[in-house]
Design a protein around this nucleic acid. Sequence first.
DNA 1: TTACATGCAAACCCTTTGCAATCGT
DNA 2: ACGATTGCAAAGGGTTTGCATGTAA
Lengths: 156, 156
Amino acid sequence: MADKALIEKAKKIFENFLTKQGSRKTPERFSVIDELYSLPEDEHMDVEGLFLSMRNKGYTISRATIYNTLDLLVESGLAVKHQFKDKVALYEQALTYKHHDHHVCNQCRKIREFSDPKINEIKEQIGHGFQSAITSHSLVLYGNCEIENCENLQEF
Amino acid sequence: MADKALIEKAKKIFENFLTKQGSRKTPERFSVIDELYSLPEDEHMDVEGLFLSMRNKGYTISRATIYNTLDLLVESGLAVKHQFKDKVALYEQALTYKHHDHHVCNQCRKIREFSDPKINEIKEQIGHGFQSAITSHSLVLYGNCEIENCENLQEF
DNA sequence: TTACATGCAAACCCTTTGCAATCGT
DNA sequence: ACGATTGCAAAGGGTTTGCATGTAA
């Protein structure tokens, strides 16, 4: 879960990024990496969650700084931002990121990841047809749970 | 563009829907259909746009009523709601709707529609794998414009 | 030293809600 | 007449912004 080497690697990349940008290497910025990269690699976290969890651990950090830092992490390729149907944005680590898409359960909102190469064929084909260099995509499937005795279903 | 017969058909469907629900057939509700279905069929409009345009035409309608009515239109299958990267929700007619996905230009934000059957294969495959009855999906491609002298590019 | 970054709270923006007035049925 | 629907304005919730204070370089 908390892969020390991975966290160090992320910090190193971030340091280079900040240097190149001429931005400051503040402890708050690195603490956000610590937090995000201490989560399971496929976990999706929102700003409030990061904020509360960091405050609980004794960090003094503000929501504003978390928002700012997450923008930098996205720019530097260390985080990915997702906007599902809900209004909060969710972030996940991107360092070990192989591009994947998401499936959201209509009942429990649990997010699962999948990857299907057919999406790349679609991107190539449509990009060509529209004379557009596709830079990214977002694919989310929503479905009703068909798992018998699904443990997440009990609260519904 | 403004296909009278289509608008009438939409109103008829809406009327049946409202009757079945035991909901009232108010003029405001039908005026929203008029407005949405007077747009080009592939146009995506937000609530503020509908509100201003309707006010300009002399309707007295509130934003709240537009929000309420759009929910009903979505329920009755007469409108589709989209949430792209931006924070406003966009709506489009759904009566002539064949499911399609969207391509958003990174430069001018123009939305174009496409349809690729490969998405259905992905849905079947992943739905099966996750034991989930896929009810809907959202696929958006983002790309950089490669159209020479693109008319929309001038303002950038 | 000096700009850039931080923390806080206020402002923002879209959407939802509460409530008195209105209007379908 | 009754109760659902409306319009308005206020509240909500996530995100952004302004500004005084703090701090990396």
